[in-house]
Design a binder for these strands. Structure first.
Length: 424
RNA sequence: GGAGAGGUGUCCGAGUGGCUUAAGGAGCACGCUUGGAAAGCGUGUGUACCUCUAAAGGGUACCGAGGGUUCGAAUCCCUCUCUCUCCGCCA
């Protein structure tokens, strides 16, 4: 969530930033925050003064009782009683203001970066790079949903039988290809200096709020009612929340983690005929990188993360493009996001396989994630994350792009991991 | 799932209504001491909000969370939550 002090100090920038996202009443929203904060302050000041007085009354009473001056003590008591009544009201007011302020802040998204262009949807995202050659497929090339049947490597019907639509079963060389990719991604990240973690894939409510999925995206996560927990839609949640309520020392920075987890998404309402095969699933595997950085370093880190992602895609020899998300497609919590899309040649489609974002202090403010600078001041840190990478669409692209009459060629770098070079 | 015991500061740990401004110890920082170090001695040592400010200072809240009793709560009462131990179940 945004910081009130920043909203006050740079109101104009905040108004413009929210308007960029298409929020027409941005100024009204921010004014509400500012007003609530002022009221909160005033109330708190009044309460603090009264509490101070009440504390000293209590001490006086204690002293008087000791000296046996009952009458005087009773007098002070009755004065204190009046004060207490007032304070009760002030206390209620204060928590009301605090609640409303929090609520207001929870509902305001992050301010987009200056470089983010205005747009309505993913169609307005800006392509900033294109790498690799689009393969020319032979006559009769098939989309991956046909290839997986032909080679019997992924089975959707079986998944439907045991669970439901969107939960495929990986079999034989399909399972081994996926495992090879996971290991390859993890190894690449570890080589690049990311410390590996294996987090839980269920999280509590506090974690959901910490990274901003709650309350914004409640309906998109699977909720375990009996435990009041959520299946994670991304490893970002457990990994970033490792640092909830933490004040780091300066020499612990930067924090760089990589983690592999399954991810679960309800994708409520977004199912349609345009998503087939591996393009969109309820459960999928993903390797995620997360960084925690000093504010002045975070944009250099974002660039490094993008380089890491494109490096992997190059090694896999997949053609891909990089997009800077426009204001309309930018996530609620993000300041700047780059998407990476691979070209899947048989369906002639770009598929998003990674999304790399800088959240600046938006998550850190909720998480209370700070570090001590040389003056022993607590400074909110910047959080970043990116997929490196999401598995199913990478598999779809490999299957489609690498097909030939004799089967599917495994990318060179993966052969040591798969132990075979052709799926047939 | 059943029974019991607990949650105090960076850590250990005392603390059953005002002598607590959270004892004592450890750690850490600075200073004294020393040829240098250790020991010793001294001082300091959390978070948030507010106020004041050049700086210092001052106020309030925080002893798992939230309520309550009381002039006054770490301490008493209620609810919740988490941890630990034993039993049960179990990869």
């Amino acid at each position: 969530m945004l910081q009130v002090a920043n909203i006050i100090a740079e109101k104009d920038r905040h108004v413009k930033g929210l308007q960029k996202r298409g929020i027409k009443n941005a100024e009204v929203l921010l004014n509400e925050v500012i007003t609530l904060d002022e009221e909160r302050k005033k109330t708190q000041q009044a309460l603090d003064t009264n509490l101070s007085e009440a504390n000293s009354f209590a001490k006086q009473i204690g002293a008087l009782m000791k000296e046996g001056k009952r009458d005087e003590a009773e007098q002070v008591k009755s004065r204190n009683a009046e004060l207490k009544a007032v304070n009760k009201g002030l206390g209620e007011q204060l928590s009301e203001y605090q609640k409303r302020l929090k609520q207001a802040l929870y509902n305001i998204p992050n301010i987009p970066h200056d470089s983010v262009t205005v747009g309505k949807s993913d169609e307005d995202n800006v392509e900033i790079d294109r790498t690799g050659e689009i393969p020319q497929l032979a006559e009769g090339a098939q989309p991956h949903w046909d290839l997986i049947k032909k080679y019997d490597i992924i089975d959707f019907e079986l998944g439907i039988k045991i669970t439901g639509a969107g939960f495929p079963v990986f079999k034989g060389k399909g399972a081994r290809l996926q495992r090879a990719l996971v290991n390859f991604f993890l190894d690449e990240a570890v080589k690049a200096g990311y410390a590996e973690v294996q987090p839980p894939i269920m999280v509590n409510e506090a974690s959901g709020y910490g990274t901003g999925q709650l309350p914004d995206k409640e309906g998109q996560m699977y909720h375990i009612a009996s435990e009041n927990m959520y299946l994670i839609p991304t490893a970002e949640i457990p990994i970033t929340n490792l640092y909830r309520d933490v004040i780091l020392s300066e020499d612990a920075l930067p924090i760089k983690h990589v983690g592999f987890t399954p991810c679960f998404r309800r994708e409520a309402g977004s199912w349609g005929s345009h998503v087939r095969g591996l393009n969109r699933l309820h459960q999928f595997d993903k390797v995620e990188i997360v960084e925690i950085r000093k504010p002045e370093e975070s944009y250099a880190a974002l660039q490094e993360m993008c380089n890491h992602v494109s490096g992997i895609l190059k090694k896999l020899a997949l053609p891909f493009r990089t997009l800077r998300l426009c204001s309309g497609d930018l996530g609620f919590t993000s300041v700047l996001t780059f998407d990476f899309e691979v070209y899947s040649a048989a369906q002639e489609k770009w598929l998003e396989v990674s999304s790399v974002s800088n959240f600046e202090t938006f998550q850190a403010n909720r998480l209370k994630l700070r570090y001590k600078d040389e003056n022993k001041k607590s400074i909110l840190l910047h959080t970043l994350n990116g997929s490196a990478l999401a598995l199913p669409r990478i598999i779809a692209a490999i299957l489609e792009n690498n097909q030939f009459e004799g089967g599917i060629k495994v990318p060179e770098v993966l052969i040591p991991y798969t132990g075979f070079d052709i799926i047939d």
